[in-house]
Design a protein around this nucleic acid. Structure first.
Lengths: 250, 250
DNA sequence: CGGAAATTTGAAATCGCTCAATGATAGTGG
DNA sequence: CCACTATCATTGAGCGATTTCAAATTTCCG
């Protein structure tokens, strides 16, 4: 299987040794059927997951029975990392499509983090990126209407799919049900449906089954109104240990 | 000045050497007047900030002129860390009260991160905690009404103030204007005002100027409907380097 | 082919927004 | 210390966006 390592290479260029260490961290492979949970909210946290194939929704339940999808994960993502700060998982990891993950025991992750500073920095930067994405999402949901939220989400997913496949055009498969899409953007299923219809009729998107075409990228970006984010590459502070051998806190 | 280090001690118990290294990281002290920006959105990122005194709002602007407050920072917080993944800042750091910060150059932060693995792990866990808080916030804003959101926010701030001062009772000063509170919970100023009035009339909170009393904690928690989060202490994977001397990725 | 899940539409009710105006409060300079 | 001014808090009324409830249609899967 082709291992999707593009997320690992997004902020630094790992050495062969580092890549090998990362590979060694992955343990049992696990396959999960569509609509099944990889790990449920409130379960004790003792592992994270490396997503090889499929789409995963990260869901937070609320008392009144509803739930919010706070993140759609694509291959290459590490799942469940935020819950490492908790004794019990913050989120349910739900397989939106058939999914393949590698299980990463916390011990393995921790060992890597403590002994491979550049990889630790790469993971750290990746999670700060997730934080920025969450901030933008919160802004989108808190301050804009449903059409703008849908536009923002479609553009976001499109960007991330392009990171996996730079040849990707304006069309892509969106394997989410409308109910799930509604949970992502924070509206009702009914209202989401109408919003999609309106975007379709206005010519900004086209739909054929679960295939979406972003027909008017510029218009969608204007509509969404979200700031453009440019991520860093190899920031100066991520030094190789060789450059500064002595440890401050041994 | 009393340095608020409770956030640093939340996940691990730092050694004297580690504390000293953390102290050395802080540089110029800077004072910022109420309603002034510490650092504005879109500015190049070359430092983060350690908040000593005062409250800071982390704001994301949208194209239509509105903005979302994605985080209220209290003393002890590191500000601007999420933007380390970007070339230009994601958020404006706005002083809600008169504020004192220490400037931390990225180089200094990076040096600490690369050479003090346990401190790096502590900072990492702190930022994963922030991610969980953002996920919960997104859920609150995406799936619940204004009264529930206000309840969730007040409870959250109350918890965090108690972390600073364990003796704190049900009353506290909330130095935010209603306009800012509205930007926090994602509603209009007008609607926020009515929501506060309703919570007040229903007896769940009391207000005297900027002093808030959470008169019915249980009722507020039930109303907010957010899951309870318990954070880890000294997780097993955070080892001292002495225990595992050889580096995997030197 | 049959049944379940997903999509789509209508109509009425509710929540939150906009616009507009009035009171209260706090900070500032004389 | 007071007057002045700007900011902040509060309320009303009407409008618009979104939800809720209910039902019909389509698609998907076994």
């Amino acid at each position: 299987m082709q291992v999707p390592l593009h997320r690992l290479r997004e902020f630094i260029s790992p050495t062969a040794v580092e890549l090998a260490a990362f590979e060694k961290m992955r343990r049992n492979r696990r396959k999960i059927a569509r609509q099944h949970a990889i790990r449920s909210q409130m379960e004790p946290v003792d592992e994270v997951y490396f997503l090889l194939e499929g789409w995963v929704a990260s869901c937070v339940d609320v008392a009144d029975g509803g739930r919010q999808i706070v993140k759609i994960h694509l291959p290459g993502d590490l799942l469940g990392v935020a819950s490492m700060s908790l004794t019990h998982a913050a989120e349910t990891l739900l397989a939106v499509t058939p999914v393949t993950v590698d299980v990463v025991p916390l011990q393995g992750f921790g060992h890597l983090f403590m002994h491979c500073p550049r990889l630790a920095a790469a993971v750290f930067l990746s999670t700060q990126q997730e934080r920025v994405i969450l901030m933008d999402k919160l802004t989108s949901v808190g301050r804009t209407g449903s059409a703008q939220r849908v536009a923002a989400f479609l553009l976001h997913i499109h960007e991330r799919l392009k990171l996996m496949d730079p040849a990707l055009r304006a069309s892509f498969d969106l394997p989410l049900t409308q109910a799930q899409l509604a949970e992502v953007v924070g509206v009702t299923t009914v209202h989401l449906n109408r919003t999609l219809r309106d975007l379709d009729r206005s010519g900004m998107i086209e739909r054929t089954g679960h295939r979406i075409t972003l027909a008017d990228l510029k218009g969608l970006r204007e509509l969404a109104g979200m700031p453009v984010r440019r991520f860093v590459r190899e920031p100066a502070w991520v030094t190789s240990i060789g450059e500064q051998p002595e440890s401050l806190c041994a």
